[in-house]
Design a protein around this nucleic acid. Structure first.
Lengths: 146, 146
DNA sequence: CGGCTAACGTTATCTGCATAAGGTTAGCCG
DNA sequence: CGGCTAACCTTATGCAGATAACGTTAGCCG
């Protein structure tokens, strides 16, 4: 592959990252959320209460990021952190009523964003898109390298 | 589109962003660069000296980001910022010899990353990928919205 | 049971990128 | 030529996310 072609690939990914995040920020702003936080709330809504280490793994972000984001979502009343009964090191995080209500809002918004994202694509391409993106994401995964 | 499908789309994009950036960081680290800076250097290598406002537009990032990133690349000796002769408000930024050498390294690395990214995809899909990503990036572009 | 390692979480610090606000200069228009 | 707007850059601040380093607890193993 020559440089121009490689650059097109890399730059397209970078641009998509920037724009998708910016659009997410725009949609999330009315809810008082910042991009990244929606993933945390949606994961808790999907899976239920869990330890922070689990969240870190589910979201593919590092534990310190979970600590800080959870602290902010706790401050805004959307979630609660309680010491784990079985393990004094761990802390369980779960949605509050406010957090569950927020998750409902998020789900609607999340569908709107996805529809906007794939606008104009054929049904086949829409169908294949998640798989395609997941594949190339796996290709550049930092962990299972050589 | 139902929520699960929408979530797959959005989450795939988020995951790709995280992983591609992480892999970029890993590859850039030996050169002493952080992700994002490579775009700046490559743009200067491609287009030549330019005003910061132009750079901001080319990279799709805001002017304050350019200021800070350029300051750091200047500190590490890869570029130089000189007052624009025709416009006292503007400052021209250009690569130094060290910066040009770095750009050469970057180009090789950039090709390797792209090849790694599209590994296992059919030639057709590789061919279509940049266009596809650019299309969906345009779909979520914040600016030309209603 | 004592000690060692591994896991959980936290704090500190760094980066990219964003918005808000402010100082200078360009450039136009009356 | 004076004033007004718009463009260029910068500083301050906030957020996500990363690493490094640290204290605390689990859990295993001699």
């Amino acid at each position: 592959m020559d440089f121009d072609q490689a650059d097109r690939v890399n730059q397209a990914i970078r641009l998509l990252s920037l724009r998708h995040r910016a659009r997410t920020a725009e949609l999330l702003a009315p809810l008082g959320l910042h991009p990244g936080q929606e993933a945390l709330v949606l994961e808790l809504a999907r899976t239920g209460p869990m330890i922070q280490a689990k969240l870190s793994e589910a979201l593919n972000i590092e534990p310190p990021s979970v600590t800080l984001m959870a602290r902010k979502l706790e401050a805004s009343g959307h979630l609660r952190r309680t010491p784990a009964p079985t393990d004094k090191r761990a802390s369980v995080v779960e949605l509050t009523d406010s957090g569950r209500a927020l998750a409902g809002q998020l789900k609607r918004l999340w569908r709107a964003l996805a529809e906007e994202t794939v606008a104009g694509l054929s049904a086949r391409k829409v169908q294949d898109l998640p798989g395609l993106l997941t594949t190339i994401a796996a290709n550049v995964d930092t962990r299972h390298r050589r």
